[in-house]
Computed example of a mutant assay.
Amino acid sequence: MKDWTFCPRCGDRTRLDGDGADTHVRCPACGFTKYDNPLPTTVGLVLDGDRILLLRRAHEPRKGGWDTVGGFLSGAETPKRTSSAKGWRRSAANSGPSASPGRIRRSTAKRA
């Protein structure tokens, strides 16, 4: 992590932020953040015809930005189970009592 002296996005000097396991490289000029986190992750795409479900990030890094469904694998979860569970928890699709992962009802939310 300490060898990330310059930002790959804008070329400005970076600095180390955070403590302990949360230490990361951050560029004060453009906001680029690099976490040294070699954990396995999963990413999924939720499609509806020619549309794709994008989620608004609620937390850093990139809070407020758009993202796909995904997250870190934990314990003995399979990639398929993790994608399903993460997408389920992070979307508005679970708005009804009969909805469950694997059987998601069409949302009644208004489109932007």
Rank of each mutant, 00 (worst) to 15 (best):
K63D: 05
F6R: 13
H24M: 07
S84R: 03
S91P: 00
R26G: 05
T5I: 13
G65Y: 14
R105L: 09
R90S: 15
G102A: 08
G70S: 02
G31W: 09
P40D: 06
F32T: 07
K86E: 14
T33F: 06
D67N: 14
A29G: 04
G102Y: 01
K110E: 07
R56V: 15
K34N: 12
T5K: 11
R111D: 12
G49C: 07
R81F: 13
R57V: 10
L55R: 06
S84E: 09
R9W: 09
A58H: 10
D36I: 11
P38Y: 11
S107L: 02
P79A: 09
L54V: 11
V46R: 09
K86G: 00
R13N: 04
T23N: 01
A109R: 15
D48A: 15
F6W: 03
R105S: 12
L47M: 14
P61D: 06
G96Q: 00
R15K: 14
W88V: 08
C27G: 08
P38R: 14
A109F: 15
L39F: 08
R103C: 02
M1Y: 13
G96N: 02
S74H: 08
K63P: 01
G87S: 04
R26K: 12
R62C: 05
H59K: 13
G31M: 10
D22S: 14
R90I: 07
K86M: 11
G49L: 02
R111Q: 10
N94A: 03
A58Q: 13
W88D: 04
G65N: 13
G20Y: 02
G64T: 06
G49D: 03
G75H: 02
M1S: 15
T41F: 10
D67H: 11
A29P: 01
G70I: 06
G20R: 07
P40C: 05
R26P: 00
R90P: 01
C7K: 01
F32A: 01
W88P: 04
S95W: 03
R105A: 14
V25Y: 08
I104W: 03
G49Q: 05
R51W: 14
H24K: 12
C30D: 05
N37H: 15
A109E: 15
K80D: 12
W4G: 08
R81G: 13
P8T: 11
D36Y: 09
C7R: 00
A85W: 07
R56Y: 08
D22V: 08
C10I: 04
H59W: 13
V25A: 14
F72R: 09
D12N: 10
G64W: 05
D67K: 10
S84W: 02
G64R: 06
D17Y: 09
A93I: 06
P97T: 03
L55K: 09
A21W: 14
G64C: 03
G71S: 11
E60V: 08
R90L: 15
T5M: 07
H59M: 13
R111P: 01
N37W: 15
P61G: 00
G20S: 05
D50F: 12
T108E: 11
G65L: 11
C7F: 02
G20W: 06
R90T: 13
G71W: 08
V43Y: 02
C7P: 01
T42V: 12
C30Q: 07
K110Y: 06
L16V: 15
K86I: 06
N37A: 15
S98A: 08
L39G: 09
D22M: 11
V43Q: 06
R9P: 02
L16G: 06
G70W: 03
T82Q: 00
T41A: 09
A29C: 06
R13E: 06
D67Y: 10
G71T: 09
